[in-house]
Write a protein that binds this DNA or RNA. Structure first.
Lengths: 340, 340
DNA sequence: TTTAGCACTCGATGTTTTAGAGTGCTAACA
DNA sequence: TGTTAGCACTCTAAAACATCGAGTGCTAAA
């Protein structure tokens, strides 16, 4: 267990390092108001803290920097839930006040605000509303071989998929098909679409002509096609502002991970309820081992519908960032609640 | 005017520099098979070439590197239209052979292939088919205040815009409205939509209730809303592979320009027919003054519908890249021709 | 238990040295 | 007259060395 004084020292080291990115020496710590001990005493404490693994030296005679264990301790025990500045608050509130019909815009804006406020890279996943139901299907033939299916959900989300139709298919047939589909599928939750399609609809259609059958095969494929995860990122270039990333190779590997949207989406989807902090090596992805990833979820009722995350150096302004994520994720939750 | 020998020397310098990114000395040039003169002679020629502005020294006693004027001369006069390797050809052809209904996929794939083949950053604009006509409008109400309009063009492009409706508006009214719109707007070229909407449709609707009028005001806004340019980029991280960009600040400024999609779109749209090469300072955008931008257009019939571009260092493999762009832009043109 | 004092370490910075690549010029050569 | 060998000179990059100062760990005194 750490003594009161050790904790004080650790706190100063981390707070200071977060702002300066420079190793902190005993003299600098002793100068702090809160600290009423001489550099020599501090040095002893620092030696202990180092032995316990909370801080590190960059070389034998350097000041100390926090280790990952140190950050972990800081995040778990030391971090005071910072009150956001008025400036920050108004900026965030402005985001939610703007009248927007499309949730995509809201999420995009949130990502932007988040990255601008923090100077880190923001990543937002979702929202995936599982209660979403199908509102309408439209089939429109484009040529004698191609057609497009347009799906509208009750949340106002619009999607379209292309599919092939046999030449012999008539416009009237297509209309019949769309009627059957609408009849059977409207109001069905999106996640149940698959089983519905394989089940009753499939059977129903077999009664009709072979054309129906083949058309339906293509359409089914198009409808079941896995849609890529909706990932919104902003401030990708912000990492370059951080002194710890003035190495091209680090930047490169980070950018490469930012391009793997599926991996990221998976990661964010797996993040549990509430705010989670992953520091350095704690991260699953190798490319992120020099970073911290903070995730927060937002929800609709009890259901967690998306994740909002921030990627930055391990030397992150944890307390401020956590507060911002808190406010933002609550804001998003409220926004979605007011919609549905 | 350059002498035959000066041209030879210049060619060697540029060819060599493009591959090694290192200054070339007289001895290295003299060793080349094509060159049958001693280093001393080469040195004299180099002094002349430098005086004329085609090559430069990095410092007093270094070898020479091409100047922008040198590259310009190379591109205009020296570049041999390289035959693509079989490997490259098959990769490109595979892109076009794949059956794809959506042109977005084709363009995306082209961008990918282009960046992978060259290791530079690819940017593709378009396609904007001006002959596109409206195939169908759908209006779907989402709540008692919000609705979505879905537009389908004869090219199979689907777009949707959200708009507000007054509470008093009935579903039946909406249907009436959509009928009127479809009646008047189907088959109208997209670029004429605006005037049509302001003209006859507007008048026609005034005859109906006030609800129609207000709804229409919102809808009009949504329909006329300027859609952002469709820009497809790939290989953004490739620039980091180039030795001339191992400076964070250069990378940062390049990335910032890559985020200004509107600017880029404007730039590409303005590029004339055929292949154009902009070297260093010739580029309009300040951030690109260390780069070369090569653009090629693709077309449908006589109409130029899009641009395909490649961004890399001034030390670019011009001949290879130009050939690839040629093949790709022709491929795209053919692909679109076969569609419409 | 705390602190002053001190020797020691090591990175950062600056200076000097050296090696080598490449140039420009001159004079000799074909 | 065009070409080339020779050579002094320049400049960079890399290595070697010196210096400074921040910071440490340890010891002994308060």
């Amino acid at each position: 267990m750490l003594t009161e004084r050790q904790i004080q020292v650790l706190q100063v080291i981390i707070d200071e390092f977060i702002h300066t990115a420079q190793p902190i020496g005993s003299r600098a710590i002793a100068k702090k108001e809160k600290i009423s001990y001489s550099p020599a005493t501090i040095r002893n404490e620092m030696a202990d803290l180092e032995e316990l693994g909370y801080i590190e030296k960059t070389h034998t005679s350097s000041g100390r920097i926090p280790s990952e264990k140190g950050y972990r301790f800081y995040v778990d025990n030391l971090m005071s839930p910072l009150r956001l500045s008025k400036h920050d608050m108004t900026i965030i509130q402005k985001t939610f006040k703007r009248e927007m019909i499309e949730f995509e815009k809201v999420v995009q804006q949130s990502a932007r605000v988040l990255s601008e406020l923090t100077n880190y890279t923001s990543i937002i996943l979702g929202p995936e509303v599982f209660e979403t139901t199908l509102k309408q299907i439209q089939l429109i033939s484009l040529s004698d071989q191609a057609a497009v299916a347009i799906l509208v959900t009750n949340t106002g989300h619009v999607e379209h998929r292309y599919f092939t139709i046999p030449r012999t298919m008539q416009a009237a047939d297509l209309e019949k098909l769309v009627n059957i589909l609408n009849d059977r599928l409207i109001g069905v939750p999106i996640i149940q679409l698959q089983q519905k399609i394989y089940g009753e609809v499939s059977q129903l259609l077999q009664r009709y002509s072979a054309d129906f059958e083949t058309t339906y095969t293509y359409l089914k494929e198009a409808l079941l096609e896995k849609q890529p995860a909706k990932l919104y990122m902003d401030g990708k270039t912000n990492i370059m502002l951080q002194p710890e990333f003035n190495d091209i190779h680090k930047i490169q590997s980070l950018y490469s991970v930012m391009e793997q949207e599926e991996e990221l989406a998976h990661l964010l989807r797996a993040s549990g309820k509430g705010i989670k902090v992953s520091i350095g090596q704690e991260n699953e992805l190798d490319e992120m081992q020099d970073c911290s990833l903070i995730t927060a979820t937002y929800s609709l009722g009890d259901e967690q519908i998306g994740t909002i995350a921030l990627l930055g150096p391990t030397r992150m302004e944890y307390s401020r960032v956590v507060s911002i994520l808190n406010v933002l994720s609550n804001g998003l939750s409220k926004k979605f609640h007011s919609w549905y």
